[in-house]
Design a protein around this nucleic acid. Structure first.
Lengths: 345, 345
DNA sequence: AAATATTGCTCAAACGTTTGCACAAATAAA
DNA sequence: TTTATTTGTGCAAACGTTTGAGCAATATTT
């Protein structure tokens, strides 16, 4: 019969007529406590329904076993599967994660960081908002002394650990693939170039064009927020051009979906008239018609590696601290939207 | 220039040569502190980069301002948009949420609850795992005295608040719609009947058949886990029947997608040969070909209402405590997969 | 001018743990 | 038997904050 009040170590102590310190040590298997009292303490603890108060422990030990995770949104397969893996890995080590969303807002991101620091999280794992161009709030994390790991949307210049894929290389793979399909005028619906990953994709796109001796036509490169609606807008604009592209490389699957919708509404054949490639390998890319070629980002691997890196920073006594940047090779998943049947079959 | 050490109220106190209590009161705008010292304290606090330690506050006040959220998975549009709304509402009131996933596992759900209770969360908002048939761990939450709100996957019999949609009614709407399309043999790929929502959908399905004088053929009702693969399996099995159904009502969009794949692989026309209806209105239902008719569950509304109910329990002094169950009317979103062109146009 | 009220602050205890130190009793070594 | 070691436990301080009670100084009322 449990009372409604929370029962503490002190309650066990008075019940057993020993000191709270003895109880605490007994519960932690301290060698200097006799086996008999240990057994006694464990039994009555269970009996009375004792639940340790982690808040008190955290305060005393200076360790909360909470980890803050900041993502632009959970409502995306990419981020939610990363989170899933992070949670899995940290849970195994006794950490709980607090997930916060920035909703791509710089100001919300700042508030999230403040909140997490006040809760005394033991570390922060983050992927930055689209809006973010000033990094002083991340510096604040560093100053507080807790580890900070960035993934995917990470800025390399503030000297923190990072896990992500090789965006520059991804663009190369995409452009090369499109050229192999016979495309000559490849447009790029890009993200804002102030975000590192999008900047790298743009650089890769431009360099690949150069490498394959295609002209770099500035009107074929447009930056945007990469939502579905943005994809529609940008696609419409590209179709206005006197000299239309014959392939579109979109830096996000969502925007690619918007672009696809517009193309279909106008009766433009994909991939025959215009080939389309997205980015991120969201599940829907293989569900729509035609299926959309995309870049697989190894979200699960990114999640696992990020968590692993965090644990090294925070727990591993053998780990010699050094900046750790991990860039994974991406994989191009070719689907119908870019696979021109070149008359070979 | 900040030091690397965390600075506390005491540090401010010694810097200003006043007592810590004065500092604390100044920071909280206590009326018995002079305006001059208040200003002084606020200034030096900002200057020294003071971050309140919520752990200490929580311990002293007996309130952590943390709320635990337990979902089967975040990796679903339905749950992630509910979470988004919950976070939005609670964030506005100074609460942070800790999201944990049960992965549909009973055992994980139990561990999650224990972890949350130890962190001293101020309340728990949960949607139960598929596996869960024993509710003693939820009783434990009730015993601990903090509020518990269930949504969607909720058991009504343990006497806690609940927010969800009317599953029974949903089935009625679906069956009626299919009958209006001229279907005569309506199958139901259902969830496990020990889960309340699926049981209700099954009941609704059976009662609706009765109401419209359709025979209730037992071989047309199959229970499963409702994953994509499960949908494929069950669809294949239904196609084996000597007397095939002409409509399938699937209790989940994911399983509906699996079913659709099988139908398309076999060249069966949807909706002409077999009409298909899913459940949940996941975004992909409007992306696939044909688009899938589904039931919209008002996930954003569920999230908002759940949070609101939690806040009433925990903060609202005027709220007269009573059991509060909220059942929303669902909306049938008719799409191509069930819309038979009855030769009218 | 005396009595009362208000203002502005300090003290110390409390929240539930953990932990260095001390200390008695039991055991082992000399 | 004396001395040294080990074993089992208690005391009290600490983590950073909040808060009731207390108290001197000032301001207000009679």
């Amino acid at each position: 019969m449990n009372n409604h009040k929370k029962i503490t170590i002190k309650d066990i102590a008075t019940a057993l007529e020993i000191s709270p310190s003895a109880v605490s040590r007994a519960l932690h298997n301290h060698p200097r406590i006799s086996e008999s009292t240990k057994k006694l303490v464990h039994e009555t603890a269970k009996e009375m329904g004792y639940q340790p108060n982690q808040l008190a422990t955290a305060l005393r030990k200076g360790k909360s076993h909470l980890v803050g995770v900041i993502v632009p949104r959970t409502n995306s397969h990419f981020f939610s599967s990363i989170i899933e893996k992070i949670e899995e890995a940290l849970d195994a080590k006794g950490y709980n994660i607090i997930i916060t969303q920035s909703n791509e807002s710089f100001e919300k991101e700042c508030r999230n960081i403040d909140a997490l620091l006040q809760i005394q999280v033991d570390g922060i794992i983050a992927s930055m908002a689209n809006e973010t161009v000033d990094f002083s709030h991340f510096e604040k994390i560093k100053e507080s002394g807790i580890p900070l790991i960035l993934f995917d949307r990470g800025e390399n210049d503030i000297g923190v650990d990072y896990v992500g894929i090789d965006d520059y290389e991804s663009s190369h793979m995409i452009v090369q693939h499109l050229i192999e399909q016979g495309c000559k005028r490849i447009a790029h619906i890009a993200g804002f170039s102030h975000t590192r990953i999008y900047k790298n994709r743009i650089r890769g796109y431009i360099d690949a064009l150069k490498k394959f001796n295609l002209p770099n036509d500035e009107e074929l490169l447009v930056e945007g927020s990469l939502t579905i609606d943005d994809g529609r807008e940008k696609m419409k604009a590209l179709l206005e051009l006197k000299d239309r592209p014959d392939a579109i490389y979109v830096a996000s699957d969502y925007a690619a979906l918007g672009a696809l919708q517009v193309l279909q509404e106008r009766g433009i054949k994909v991939p025959d008239d215009i080939a389309l490639v997205g980015f991120g390998d969201e599940p829907f890319t293989s569900l729509v018609t035609p299926t959309i070629t995309s870049v697989h980002q190894y979200s699960k691997k990114i999640g696992a590696l990020t968590a692993q890196q965090f644990l090294k920073r925070v727990d591993d006594k053998n780990w010699i601290p050094h900046l750790h940047k991990l860039i994974l090779k991406p994989e191009l998943v070719v689907r119908a939207s870019s696979k021109k049947d070149l008359g070979i079959n």
